[in-house]
């Protein structure tokens, strides 16, 4: 029953075109930021700095969220393990760097197929039977189990002590008087490139067409010859691979612990709800907005306080626009 409501009127198309919400969001964000500048009572250099950091962070958030929204749009499954898959890819990169001494960004490239295969296997061996019966609690519980399993197996292998791979490209770059380290810029650019590439794949290739077809109507797609199970597995694989990219790009400036990715599950979920479940564009915009909220908010609420603002946005979305920015309703 909920299956019908969430999949029927919600994310029928993975990629949505729409300029109206984008303008609204852009105007709102600009107005709010201008307000922070004008009456925020903070040093303007500090504000610029947090805006730049926020946008760079938001790019990576967007990538994690795209994976989540894609899996949701096609399979109707909220992947609770998204955050720990991020952790897992970071540790894959770490193992490749610390072991054979492969450079971080090459290791990231190697982590992509690993995570892609992992995602496909999860879908094929664990979720397929449950998704085809149409239950949504089953897959959610399985992904919860996977999340716990990944975090604790990593804990067993690497212990809880923080690990770091060090930054391969030192130095930083100045934009409008704000400092942005190269590794963060690379992460942002990489995330954007992968996001664009994914959008192109979804819009222009026959694989993308079949993914969109399955998202719109799995039964109909099967009738016209789409191998639905294969599309499911590939989608989960793509979702995992986009997380691998995000994880690899973040590794240089992240202190690795087995629970480092956990908060990303909920952040990505908030972003996806903000953007509209199943919408890739929404996830991208949502990622940037949440990145900004977190860093600019940190000016006023230091520590974990800025995350409260992120949840405040979430509650507001639930109240005012539960279908999200780009959700159809």
């Amino acid at each position: 029953m909920t299956e019908a409501t969430t999949r029927g009127d919600g994310p029928t198309r993975v990629v949505r075109v729409g300029t109206h919400p984008t303008t609204v969001v852009a105007v709102t964000v600009v107005v709010l930021l201008a307000a922070v500048f004008a009456v925020g009572g903070k040093d303007s250099g500090l504000v610029t700095q947090s805006i730049v950091t926020g946008l760079l962070l938001g790019g990576v958030y967007a990538l994690v969220s795209i994976g989540l929204t894609l899996i949701f749009g096609v399979l109707g499954v909220v992947n609770f393990a998204q955050g720990s898959m991020l952790t897992m890819s970071m540790y894959v990169v770490y193992a490749l760097v610390a072991g054979p001494g492969i450079p971080v960004y090459v290791a990231t490239l190697l982590a992509i197929p690993v995570m892609f295969l992992f995602g496909m296997m999860v879908q094929h061996f664990l979720l397929n039977r449950l998704t085809s019966t149409g239950s949504h609690e089953g897959p959610l519980l399985v992904t919860l189990g996977i999340q716990l399993l990944i975090a604790n197996v990593l804990l067993m292998i690497f212990t809880g002590r923080p690990k770091s791979v060090g930054t391969p490209v030192d130095g930083s770059f100045e934009v409008f008087g704000a400092i942005a380290s190269y590794s963060r810029i690379i992460a942002f650019v990489g995330a954007v490139l992968v996001g664009v590439a994914l959008t192109l794949v979804l819009r222009r290739t026959s694989l993308g067409l079949s993914i969109r077809a399955v998202a719109a109507n799995a039964q109909g797609a099967a009738l016209v010859g789409v191998n639905v199970r294969r599309v499911y597995a590939l989608t989960f694989g793509i979702g995992a691979a986009s997380v691998a990219v995000a994880g690899g790009l973040m590794t240089p400036f992240t202190s690795l612990t087995p629970s480092v990715g956990e908060q990303f599950t909920i952040l990505a979920f908030v972003i996806v709800v903000l953007g509209g479940l199943g919408s890739v564009l929404g996830a991208t915009i949502g990622g940037l907005v949440i990145g900004l909220v977190q860093t600019v908010g940190a000016l006023y609420l230091p520590g974990t306080g800025s995350l409260i603002l992120v949840f405040a946005v979430f509650v507001m979305v639930l109240f005012l626009r539960p279908q999200g920015l780009y959700g159809a309703k």
Binding site: L126, V142, G145, L148, N152, V153, L154, T159, P258
Partner: peptide
């Protein structure tokens, strides 16, 4: 001397039971 095995065990149990 490792920690995390207990949760890993019941996570596995959870996955198996659900499927």
């Amino acid at each position: 001397g490792t920690s995390g095995l207990d949760v890993a065990v019941y996570a596995t149990l959870l996955i198996i039971i659900v499927i």
